[in-house]
Amino acid sequence: MHVLFATSIVPDGALSSGYEIANQAIIDALRRNGVRVTVLGFGWPGKAPSDPENTILLGSLDVRTDTAPLPRKLAWLASAVASGLTFASAKLRVIPEERVREAIAAAGPFDGYILNSVQMAAAFEDAFRDKPSIFVAHNVEFRSATENSQAARGAFQRILFRREARLLEVIEKRLCRNARFVFTLAEEDRAELGVASETRSVALPLVTRSDLPPATGTRRIECDAGLIGTWTWEPNRIGLDWFLGKVVPHLRADFRIHIAGSVPAGVSSPHPGVSFVGRVPDAQAFVRSAAVIPLVSTSGSGVQLKTIETFELGLPSVATAHSLRGIAHKPRNCIMTDDPAAFARALQQTVDQAVADVDGSDFHRRQIAALDRAVALGLATLGAGTREVAA
């Protein structure tokens, strides 16, 4: 079987965001099921695809809103309004749809599409109607947009998010309706998208890498708590705001918190132990340098890849209930609470008691096996030709 994996940004090997990690996990699972995968999409400027022989580039494109100059943001907004597309999909309309059709034809014979998330699928929706498809819903985007509008810090931003939510609810449900099958990243999202039937969808248990690195022995602790993420993405920003505003005030003054990743302007904390360290060269080394990992998601949908990575590495953690969406097994060194004061106490107790790491390899093996079985269910709707996956 040969599938065309249509995505906004093609993998380049960096795996610097949860979206990229999830994409690679799904592509790897497809290939473990014996499927030939050709990836179609845009590349980051200056970055080459990680698998150029099986990638068709539509051009290079920087889709980040937070670093875009004002004229580009206004152009994206004008394109979105004129086309009736969402802001995210309008960013991709830098080439005509005919160029996408030509790229599809250049892929050669294939059996169907994997439409990876709503952005690309909606930007060139008509171009993907000639073959059966599986739609990958990374999140319930309209629900996230609604939550973002409620948390918006200005009237204009609130209006934009409300517009996105209205459009996304129609688009996502249409993409689900037209697809042969739907992959979600959290069990709860299946019902939210109206595809809860076992013949219509399955939730994918994800991993952050196909093979876990060997255990490296004793960790060198450089801070009490470590958080890393793309904080400019609004659902992540909401969780960070909750942590800094509600949890951190309950922590003692000598509790050291390192926050890595791109942080939007205006995010700060008066707590003397909070340090914003920016981009780090090795995300795994960073989280391994923390005594405990706060998992602070409070909004959005889908699954939290940072939660999965923490569990794969066996690191002690304190998590909100929302951070555990899509997780079937909570390790014994993870404490779950949504109460800010209790969250702070759990962080301090974990550090004070030097809670030990656990072996994350069993969690990883279970996730891989379940992921491959789930992907096989979807592939069966596109046709025969995949090998049987062992239980």
Rank of each mutant, 00 (worst) to 15 (best):
Q24Y: 08
I21N: 01
D372I: 13
S317T: 06
F124H: 10
F87W: 15
L92F: 04
P52N: 08
L313V: 03
E198Y: 08
I95A: 03
D130E: 15
C223H: 07
K246L: 14
K47N: 11
L382N: 06
G112C: 05
L295W: 03
T337P: 15
L251E: 11
A137I: 01
K131D: 11
L240N: 02
P316S: 02
G229E: 07
L175C: 05
H250C: 09
L315T: 00
L377Q: 12
F363T: 08
A253I: 14
E222Q: 14
P213C: 06
N33W: 06
G229L: 07
P205T: 01
S197H: 10
I257M: 14
T218E: 07
S210H: 13
S275W: 04
V248I: 11
A107V: 03
D339N: 12
P235G: 09
P71F: 03
S323G: 14
L115R: 03
A344Q: 06
N23Y: 07
A68F: 05
V274I: 10
R387Q: 10
F286I: 03
S201A: 09
R174A: 02
A6Y: 06
A374Y: 02
A265M: 12
L305G: 06
V202K: 00
R101H: 08
L92V: 05
E102G: 08
V280D: 10
T216K: 09
L382D: 06
G18D: 01
V318T: 01
S299C: 10
A88L: 12
E222S: 12
L185S: 00
T218W: 00
S301C: 11
K91V: 08
A106G: 11
P205Q: 00
R36T: 09
L251W: 12
R180V: 02
V318R: 02
Y113E: 06
P109C: 09
A369C: 06
T65K: 13
V267I: 15
A107P: 04
L377S: 07
V94E: 10
V63P: 04
R279S: 15
D339A: 09
R166G: 05
P264H: 13
V267C: 07
L58K: 09
L57P: 07
S301I: 04
S210Q: 10
V10Q: 08
T199D: 15
G245H: 10
S144R: 06
A127F: 01
A80L: 05
G229D: 04
A137C: 02
E97D: 15
A14P: 01
K131G: 03
E147R: 04
R72W: 13
C176W: 03
H322V: 12
N333D: 07
S268I: 13
Q367C: 14
L15K: 13
I26S: 00
Q157N: 14
